[in-house]
Design a protein around this nucleic acid. Structure first.
Lengths: 196, 196
DNA sequence: CGTCCGCTTGACTCAGATCAAACTTGGTGG
DNA sequence: CCACCAAGTTTGATCTGAGTCAAGCGGACG
């Protein structure tokens, strides 16, 4: 169920907007009125711990839905941010819920998406439990790469990548360096090449 | 949609079993044929990191569904374990999917459950990102307690609780001791009382 | 009665966090 | 066109607190 198809089916209950600079789509605690879709660019969900650390809980790229869980909650549980240059689709919550109620196929498809999130989040927890920075990075890269792929370029910056996997950027850069010295990967500007 | 109601609706596509000792319901990688429900007792999902650490990704108590995400995946992504004494309901995957397809209300209700999991998992990630053992414990207790509640007793053991929030049991016990000394909580056998 | 397992405490280690500073790079605006 | 600013990148020095290993206690259960 690609984002644009969904927008077409919802008609007036959907609109698309482009953002020049980083923009907060919603704050934690706001009443939920919309679910979102990333048409182009990226958006991410952010939470802040009591210690003040900001952690990226989810990053959505072009084609992804965003804040699906908000459909079933009265308030957002994270901050939602659209990255500069992103095109974001706004879907009205009520329209989507109606559609699910009446269209079983759609409901199942939607459920499948959310179930996928659950598994990704569990992988994320497993990932963050890896103590060694090097192993954590390698595991994160494996998760992000498809079968047989060997090159990776982070969406955004390496600094952002560090936040996503729960490392400080200093620890990340140092570990990347060690990995390169150990010939477990090679760096070439913003992209890394796995294995040698 | 309580577990027993679901079992009744599914008829022959559901069965209930009781386990004397800890039992593995499924292994990571097994083909998914069932979703589960905890009638009584508890069950948990476990993953093992490359470093060999076993982490508890989810713990289900009486009345909870278990391994919902398996419905939309061809293989399990975690190990599923029934704790000694648990009564577990087995639901056939295909029967459930059919039911969702035909009954929109049921599909939405099911989706709501999974969406709830997503939010709990995100809270969990936030929780595990808290570095200080003391703060992490306090945050975990807050999450588990309802509004106004002040007493908590872990399902299972404190050791298990430690695994759930990503601490070693030693670190947990030490932090509990410090928290008690700082009068942020009081321990009384297996239960803790928040705030003095 | 013995074994298992949760609980508890101690001593030590170490890897990542933290603080600090320099250097790229890209974009803005005068 | 260049000064300037913001943000990412890189490296160094130091610190800290959770992990690890080790050992002893006590209750439950067969």
């Amino acid at each position: 169920m690609p984002v644009m198809d969904l927008a077409a089916r919802l008609g007036g209950a959907a609109r698309i907007e482009t953002f020049k600079a980083d923009t907060v789509l919603f704050h934690r605690g706001d009443v939920t009125r919309h679910m979102f879709g990333v048409v182009d660019g990226q958006a991410y969900l952010r939470r802040t711990t009591i210690e003040g650390a900001e952690i990226v809980v989810h990053r959505a790229l072009g084609g992804d839905l965003f804040a699906e869980a908000a459909l079933f909650s009265s308030s957002y549980h994270c901050d939602g941010i659209a990255v500069a240059g992103a095109r974001i689709a706004w879907f009205e919550k009520t329209a989507l819920l109606d559609m699910m109620q009446t269209d079983g196929r759609f409901a199942v498809a939607f459920c499948r998406r959310i179930a996928g999130q659950v598994q990704r989040l569990r992988s994320n927890i497993e990932l963050r439990a890896i103590r060694s920075a090097e192993d954590r990075i390698m595991a994160a890269l494996s998760l992000r790469l498809g079968e047989g792929e060997t090159r990776y370029e982070p969406a955004g910056s390496w600094k952002g990548f560090a936040a996503e996997i729960g490392l400080t950027h200093e620890a990340l850069y140092r570990a990347l360096k060690r990995l390169e010295q150990a010939k477990r990967l090679r760096r070439d500007g913003p992209v890394v090449e796995l294995g040698v």
